[in-house]
Simulated scan of single mutants.
Amino acid sequence: MSAQLNHTIVWCRDKHRSAHFLVELLGLPAPEPFGPMLIVRFDNQVSLDFYDNDPPIASQHYAFLLGDDDFDRAFARLQARGQPWWADPGKQRPKQVNDYAGGRRVYFDDPDGHLLEIFTRE
């Protein structure tokens, strides 16, 4: 069997707020409770497991490859929320869309300061 990423824990101050932020933005099914966590499942069988933890929360980076139509919907939701976004992970190009490799990508923070990325081309 080859190695595959199955899940990772996302440390957060409020798992309900953080998990729902992600599923609402990406248009995913509601998170599922599993023990002390809320599980967000993706089409490729990987999950993010949201787990409450005391601050400080160390910022992590999570990137989501989307089809063009899904990107359009997620980006529209991001803008409708008034959420700041950047074209780069260093946050030097605000309110711009990165067109690297002929695709589109933007970066933004989740409620716990994790740097999220949505993009259309690898």
Rank of each mutant, 00 (worst) to 15 (best):
Q60G: 12
D88T: 03
I57M: 08
L78V: 09
S59F: 08
K91R: 15
D72N: 11
W86M: 06
D49N: 12
C12L: 06
D109V: 01
V97Q: 10
E24M: 10
L116R: 06
A87G: 11
R93Q: 15
F71W: 05
G82V: 05
H16A: 14
D68Y: 08
F75V: 03
L115P: 04
W86K: 04
P55Y: 13
P33F: 11
R105M: 10
D49R: 06
R81K: 06
D69T: 14
V106M: 00
D14R: 05
L26E: 06
A87M: 02
P29K: 03
M1D: 11
D112T: 02
R105F: 01
G103A: 00
N98C: 06
L65G: 08
P31Q: 04
D99H: 15
A19Q: 02
K91C: 12
L38W: 03
L22V: 05
R13F: 02
P89F: 14
A87E: 04
P56H: 10
E117W: 01
S18D: 11
D49G: 05
F71R: 08
R73K: 15
E24S: 15
T8R: 07
F108Y: 12
A76T: 09
S18R: 01
A74Y: 04
L66F: 08
P89V: 03
F108D: 09
L66A: 04
H20A: 03
D72V: 02
H7Y: 14
Y100H: 11
F34P: 01
Q4L: 08
L26Q: 04
R77V: 08
A3H: 13
W85Q: 07
L78W: 01
R104L: 00
C12P: 01
Y62E: 07
R77Y: 05
I39S: 08
F71E: 04
D109K: 12
F34G: 07
H114S: 02
W11I: 01
V106H: 06
E24V: 10
D43F: 00
M37C: 14
H61N: 12
I118H: 01
H16T: 14
F108H: 06
R93I: 08
R77M: 09
L25K: 06
V46T: 07
F75A: 13
H7A: 12
R73V: 13
M1I: 07
L115K: 12
W85M: 10
R73F: 09
Q92R: 15
G113V: 03
A87I: 03
P36H: 11
F119H: 13
E117T: 05
V23N: 10
A87S: 02
M1K: 13
T120W: 00
F119A: 09
H16R: 13
V10A: 05
D70M: 08
L48D: 06
D49C: 10
Y107R: 07
F64G: 01
N53E: 15
V10N: 03
S18L: 12
I9F: 15
P31L: 05
Y100C: 07
D68Q: 14
R41P: 04
V23E: 04
V23F: 09
